[in-house]
Write a protein that binds this DNA or RNA. Structure first.
Lengths: 210, 210
DNA sequence: TAGATTGTTAATCGATTAACAATC
DNA sequence: TAGATTGTTAATCGATTAACAATC
C-alpha cells in the first residue's frame, strides 16, 4: 500500500462528494460520471477523478461510477464506516447547538458525554446525555473509550480542557475556542474559528474590483 | 497599487496574527518580531513576513514591528476598521449560539436583524434584537443596509434564504447549511461545514502510521 | 465499431521555505 | 560598529489543470 501524501483539500472535497452522493442515491440514480459529480458540487471533473485516484480505481471507463459503491468507498476512506464516541466540553449556546446538530449523528459521531462546570447545568439532560462536572472528564471519557473531544468552552479554559482530553486518551480534538492549543503530536487537532470566516468575507468584499 | 493575488491562507493567518496581537498588546508589549509572532501562533517567521509583505512594509529592520501599529494595519486590511451590519436567518440552537457569540461583536460584526419562521420564536427578543418572520427579510435587511447574511436554517431552506439575502442586497453570505448554494458572482459566499471538520480528523486518525 | 469516460501523466500554477542583502 | 531583524528574491515543494491513452 503506497502512502502518498494526500492534500487536506482532497479530504474536504471527498466529504462534500459524499454528501452529494447521499442526495444522488436518494433519487435512485445508479451511475454517475466525474462530470456529474463535478457539476453537483462546483469543482472540475479532473479534480474529482484526481481526488478519487489517490485511493484506488472506483469507476469503469466509458461508464462512470456506481453511486452506492463509490459512496461506500468514500465513507470508508473518511473513517465513517464506524461510529465515533465524542465528548463535548462546554454546554453554552455553542455546545447546545453542537449537541443537537443533526449532521454529527448522521455521519456517525455520537456524543456520549457532556461536561460543564456550571452547577446549574450539571445534572441536566441534553439530547439524552447527562451533563457532568468537568472534574469527571478524565475518568468518564476514559471509561467510555472516547475517541474525539470537542472544546466549546471560553478561550481561557481551552488549554486545560485540551490537557484533560489528552489525559483521557482521545485521538482527536475539535477546538472552537479562538486560541492556539498545544497537544502532543499523536493527538489530531483541528480548529474552527467562526470569526475568521467572516473576516475572510470582509477582506474579499473590501478588495473586490467594482 | 499592485493587485497581487493574495492566498486565502494568508488572510486566515492575518486574522490569527491579529488576535494574537490583541493579547500581546494587552500585556503592554510595544515591539514584536516576526519570530515572536511565529512562535505565538505556530507558523514560521518567514511565513509571517511574507504574509505581511503582500500589503506593505510595516516593520523596522533590526527592530521588529510596533504592536499597536501592526495590529491597526492588519485590522484595516481585513476590513475590520468599520463595523458590519449582519442579518442572521434561522434562530435554532446554532442561530442562538451565533447571535450570542462574543467573538463576532468584538470584531465589529453587529447582528442587526434576526429572522425565523417559527411563530413561537417570532416576536421574541434575542440579545436585544427582535426575531422577525422571514417574509420581512428583504424589506428589513434592505432598510438596515445589511452587508452580511448568515444562513443557519435547515439545508432544504438554505437556497431560498440565500436568494432573499441576495435580493436584499447583501455583499457576503456565510452559510452553515451543508449544501452547495448558487449566488451571483458579486456576492461573496463562504461555507462552514461543521461535520467536515470532524471528518478531516477521523481521516487523519485513520491514516496515522502507528 | 463508435462514443463515452476513466485513470494517469505531464504541464501549469500557486504557496511555502530558505537564504541573504538591506538597514535599523 | 556589531547585532538583529526586516523585506524580498530564488529555490523548493505541493496542488490543480489539461491532455490523452486505455478501455468499457
Amino acid at each position: 500500500m503506497k502512502t502518498l501524501k494526500i492534500p487536506e483539500a482532497t479530504i474536504i472535497r471527498l466529504s462534500v462528494y459524499s454528501r452529494h452522493l447521499t442526495e444522488v442515491d436518494r433519487k435512485g440514480i445508479v451511475t454517475i460520471s466525474s462530470g456529474d459529480i463535478a457539476e453537483g458540487v462546483g469543482v472540475s471533473p479532473a479534480q474529482v477523478r484526481k481526488d478519487l485516484a489517490y485511493f484506488g480505481e472506483f469507476g469503469t471507463r466509458g461508464v462512470g461510477y456506481n453511486v452506492k459503491d463509490l459512496h461506500r468507498h468514500i465513507l470508508k476512506i473518511l473513517g465513517l464506516s464506524q461510529d465515533w464516541s465524542v465528548s463535548l466540553v462546554g454546554m453554552g449556546n455553542l455546545g447546545l447547538a453542537l449537541t443537537t446538530y443533526k449532521g454529527f449523528r448522521e455521519r456517525g459521531f455520537i456524543i456520549t458525554s457532556i461536561f460543564d462546570n456550571d452547577p446549574k447545568k450539571v445534572g441536566t439532560v441534553v439530547n439524552g446525555v447527562e451533563v457532568m462536572p468537568v472534574d469527571k472528564l478524565v475518568e468518564v471519557a476514559k471509561a467510555n473509550k472516547t475517541q474525539i473531544g470537542i472544546i466549546a468552552v471560553p478561550s481561557q479554559f481551552a488549554q486545560e480542557t485540551a490537557d484533560k482530553l489528552v489525559e483521557a486518551g482521545v485521538q482527536a480534538i475539535l477546538n472552537f475556542a479562538p486560541v492556539v492549543l498545544n497537544v502532543p503530536p499523536e493527538v489530531e487537532l483541528r480548529n474552527v474559528d467562526l470569526a475568521v470566516n467572516l473576516e475572510v468575507l470582509t477582506f474579499n468584499v473590501g478588495t473586490r474590483r467594482s
